[in-house]
């Protein structure tokens, strides 16, 4: 009936382990989970930096073709006007800003993950900070995506202008880009409301329970 008796019962399991483990299956699962995680990170990098590299190279190619006089020589194409060169440079800056902000965000994230924690309370604090940061970032994702969408819009409009494609075709493309931006922003908001806010609240409850002796 006393706590010491419970301790004896508890210690009795040390002689005979509760479970056996299929070690081969365990190692297979760990390897596959680890590979899946690395593949996901790899594809995220490909998407972000790949699209940035593609846009930057495409803009650079058009500018080079214009400087070398190639654009004016090819049938159905015309040389770039002064304002178009400026607009392409702005598009380049927008894409550079986007990839740089993603890179810096990832670097900050890695440094947060590396930070040493010594206790469960510190683990909870770190997770609360991380979740708060994720909510804040995702809330303003519209602002983060505006530069690359704006850059892409400028690029497409100039390419259409140089190739002589009608402005009527340009309008649905621009509308599509804006719709894409709005949909992305909405899906991030849903993720915040359904997953991240409840998660943050649970973490805060756990932290309060741990920190409050009366709880």
């Amino acid at each position: 009936m006393e706590f010491e008796d419970m301790q004896v019962v508890w210690n009795s399991q040390h002689d005979k382990p509760l479970y056996g483990v299929d070690e081969v299956a365990l190692h297979k699962i760990l390897r596959s989970k680890s590979q899946r995680f690395h593949r996901l990170i790899y594809w995220q990098h490909i998407q972000t930096y790949g699209s940035s590299a593609f846009m930057l190279m495409a803009i650079a190619a058009i500018l080079l073709a214009n400087v070398s006089g190639l654009l004016g020589k090819v049938d159905l194409l015309r040389a770039l006007a002064g304002w178009e060169i400026v607009a392409l440079l702005v598009a380049m800056v927008a894409w550079l800003q986007f990839s740089l902000s993603v890179y810096l965000g990832q670097k900050q994230q890695k440094s947060r993950e590396r930070s040493d924690t010594q206790s469960l309370l510190e683990d909870l604090d770190r997770e609360i900070k991380h979740t708060t940061y994720q909510i804040r970032t995702r809330k303003h994702i519209l602002m983060g995506f505006i530069p690359p969408y704006f850059g892409t819009g400028l690029f497409i409009s100039i390419v259409f202008g140089v190739t002589g494609v009608s402005n009527w075709i340009l309008s649905p493309v621009i509308v599509g880009l804006i719709l894409g931006l709005i949909l992305e922003s909405r899906s991030q908001r849903r993720l915040i409301e359904r997953e991240m806010v409840p998660r943050l609240s649970e973490l805060e409850i756990l932290r309060d329970k741990l920190a409050d002796p009366q709880h």
């Binding site: 508890w10 399991q13 509760l18 479970y19 056996g20 299929d22 365990l26 329970k209 709880h215």
Partner: peptide, 26 residues
């Protein structure tokens, strides 16, 4: 992955785990 050892029957230990499971996570 985990194979429960069927030979181990310890109702007191089961009871203790049951009581622990009723506590909150902390």
């Amino acid at each position: 992955l985990l194979l429960q050892r069927s030979s181990i029957e310890n109702p007191q230990l089961d009871w203790l785990y049951e009581q622990i499971s009723q506590l909150d996570e902390i």
